[in-house]
Design a protein around this nucleic acid. Structure first.
Length: 205
DNA sequence: CGTTCGATGCACT
DNA sequence: GTGCATCGAACGT
């Protein structure tokens, strides 16, 4: 069952927790790729210094101020796309960054897309659990680019759905890759997933 | 184990 | 011009 808009129109930390175990699926002309969400981070409001809404509304962060259940995709470090799900009722800028998936469908296509990146040419092929480990890796594997920015996640080529699977243990830890706002434990992971990113495994709950 | 660093594009000041 | 919500190899300890 595809998650409805109301799922996203809630407190962001609740949405982040409930997204663990759900399936992100992208359909393109090349085929379908999908994976189970095992790592997310919450970015909440203009008072959160790490949130893209911190400077106030701009052209780039406009999707954060729009309706929930929409994809917010941006490009950074010159080579990586990041995909977020916009949360909270319209007007409250917040989102959940999707950081890692366990691949479910389209693994061959994922591998092909990962191998296409210039910087990766000549590198060893990623293992199954590395294909969608890390926010930059999963967007590459699923073929998510700025073309998917502002797409609704409740229908169409890019959706998040519930296939009935339930995750057992989750853990909260500090968000990574940022220099401010690290006091919040707003990173939520499936405790024992091999696909979770980072050199250090987050603490077991 | 840990830290450093290059590749690379664009929004923002 | 500066600084990223990164990745992964190459180092040092």
């Amino acid at each position: 069952m595809i998650l409805a808009r109301e799922f996203y129109a809630r407190p962001t930390l609740d949405v982040a927790r409930d997204l663990l175990g759900k399936v992100l699926r992208h359909r393109t002309g090349d085929g379908v790729t999908a994976g189970r969400i095992v790592e997310v981070e919450a970015y909440i409001g203009e008072d959160d210094p790490a949130c893209h809404a911190a400077p106030g509304p701009t052209e780039r962060n406009a999707p954060l101020y729009g309706p929930p259940g929409v994809a917010y995709v941006y490009f950074n470090y010159g080579l990586h796309h990041m995909v977020n799900a916009v949360t909270e009722p319209k007007g409250r800028p917040a989102a959940v960054l999707i950081r890692a998936l366990e691949p479910i469908e389209g693994l061959d296509l994922m591998r092909r897309r990962r191998g296409q990146l210039r910087w990766r040419q000549g590198k060893p092929a990623p293992t199954d659990h590395e294909l969608c480990r890390g926010p930059g890796n999963l967007t590459a594997a699923l073929g998510i680019t700025l073309a998917q920015n502002r797409l609704g996640l409740t229908r169409g080529p890019l959706v998040i759905h519930d296939d009935g699977e339930r995750v057992a243990d989750i853990a909260w830890s500090p968000r990574i890759g940022i220099s401010v706002g690290t006091e919040h434990l707003w990173r939520c992971t499936v405790a024992d997933s091999r696909a979770v990113s980072g050199s250090k495994r987050p603490p077991r709950s």
